[in-house]
């Protein structure tokens, strides 16, 4: 499922697997308008955007790719931060 990750002194970071899944709107025909960045809310029924991210699980640092879990049901939970009480 997930590969063991090498740990160095940098802060590991993840990101979208496919950088073309960008959120930039195409320029409008009006020459005076500038391209706007839009942040559409994700839709139910759409494919979950793939990503990879470093993780910690049971004493190990790992590298996790969402699509490696396709074939199972996945609950993806995001939260504000560790030690933030709720």
């Amino acid at each position: 499922m997930a590969e063991k990750m090498a740990v160095g002194c940098t802060r590991p970071g993840g990101g979208p697997v496919d950088e073309t899944q960008n959120l930039t709107e195409k320029p409008e025909t009006d020459p005076n308008s500038t391209p706007k960045e839009i942040k559409p809310m994700i839709q139910v029924g759409q494919k979950a955007p793939d990503f990879s991210a470093p993780g910690y699980q049971q004493g190990k640092f790992i590298d996790v790719k969402l699509s490696n879990y396709f074939g199972k049901w996945v609950l993806l939970c995001l939260y504000p931060g560790d030690f933030t009480f709720v």
Binding site: I42, Q46, A48, K72, W73, V74
Partner: peptide
């Protein structure tokens, strides 16, 4: 924010 997504085995939200 506290986002929670249910993703099915086909990768569909």
């Amino acid at each position: 924010n506290r986002g929670r997504f249910i993703i099915d085995p086909d990768g569909i939200i």
